[in-house]
Design a protein around this nucleic acid. Sequence first.
DNA 1: TATAAATCTTAAGAAAGTCTTAAGATTTAT
DNA 2: ATAAATCTTAAGACTTTCTTAAGATTTATA
Lengths: 231, 231
Amino acid sequence: MDKLNVLVCDDDKAIADALEIYLKYENYGVIKATNGIQALKALAEQEIHLILMDIMMPEMDGLSATIKIREEKNIPIIMLSAKSEDTDKITGLNFGADDYVTKPFNPLELMARVKSQMRRYTSLGSIAVKNNILKTGGLELDTEAKELRVDGEIVKLTATEYGIILFLMKNIGHVFSIAQIYEHVWDEPSYSVENTVSVHIRRIREKIEINPKDPKYLKVVWGIGYKIEKY
Amino acid sequence: MDKLNVLVCDDDKAIADALEIYLKYENYGVIKATNGIQALKALAEQEIHLILMDIMMPEMDGLSATIKIREEKNIPIIMLSAKSEDTDKITGLNFGADDYVTKPFNPLELMARVKSQMRRYTSLGSIAVKNNILKTGGLELDTEAKELRVDGEIVKLTATEYGIILFLMKNIGHVFSIAQIYEHVWDEPSYSVENTVSVHIRRIREKIEINPKDPKYLKVVWGIGYKIEKY
DNA sequence: TATAAATCTTAAGAAAGTCTTAAGATTTAT
DNA sequence: ATAAATCTTAAGACTTTCTTAAGATTTATA
């Protein structure tokens, strides 16, 4: 099952690192940012499920960032950590945070709050979404939608084609022999040399390469095997 | 035009009355209960959007009530008020509360948290607007009314159909195998390939698709599974 | 450049997955 | 208790995909 990602946004490296340890222990993915601008960037680029945001940060403070985030993204939950004046808290909450914790905080308590907020992703059988896109150059394999995009265009793959691409893209740059590919994708031993793999490779190339005869992504290494080129 | 209703569940009348004043000032509807059993009764009879629940109460304590409520109702948010031991807090959170406040609390802070939680019903002041509609393209699944609308028209679904659509729409764009769908919706392992899923899928298509043979919403990915298309 | 080995291409039949239908079983409502 | 609605199962039709094999092409090497 896919991981839930937490964006830790704090300019105090010690705190950020400590949080990372706790969060990873709870099996969350962790992305770090040291100011609001970085946070916005991370949000644009990655799938984030929860933000732990410090109010006091250089560049763009946590409050402003929170407001900006709320303007466009509704999904992630935001928790401000701050000095303990009540007014601060209230202001923060009204500007879009779902909860807050005052520093210094009890890590266990914080984790409990994180879990509590994360519950919205896991209730009633919904499956959390994550960083599920394998990328190299113009190739993007979405392992959730089971879709491949080549330069942004969706390319339809059959189950076997998907299996081959998935295997190779999980190991970008690594060359695998036909036998290895067969065994991994079909999950059964390959007694003879399997021409069927070649046929699938060719079909994949037809779908993803501009010039299948001079492939950019799905390369052959003569006498050895195939790989997805690293870009 | 409905008001958002808060169920105040505390055996201490002074506290309950004070909360009522603050809540009414913020234009929430207030229902009071002095123990867990009363709370459950109120929940069954009225539309409640948020519960302020005391941990210590006669008859049935707040924790037990919280657990019971969570078993059947997913909608209301619960906040426990308790003595300040950390373990209490954490236990409470893990048993289903969304947030908690320790006594004695600052009423302004509490109101801020109430508002924060109420935000899920949408931020048009304290007027309830449903935030529980899953949408994509012309499909709208109202998880509260348990209704599906296709281009605004209500489509009646059976329980199983609803379960399938709910699961898929909670994960729009995500492809699930027949076995995965079966396991999530039926909540039991799928030993053999379950044709029953196909049949339900077909019936759903008949209801929601203009042309079931070329579905716009409920797509099949050959050899892999089904998904609700993201629009 | 000739040769062998590996890969590529093609097309047709085989296999696998999905769709449809209908009938009987089960559940729900009255 | 009965009727109505819904669910499950099974079988065959249908569609898409996979595999195979044979010949063509490409590459490495002498």
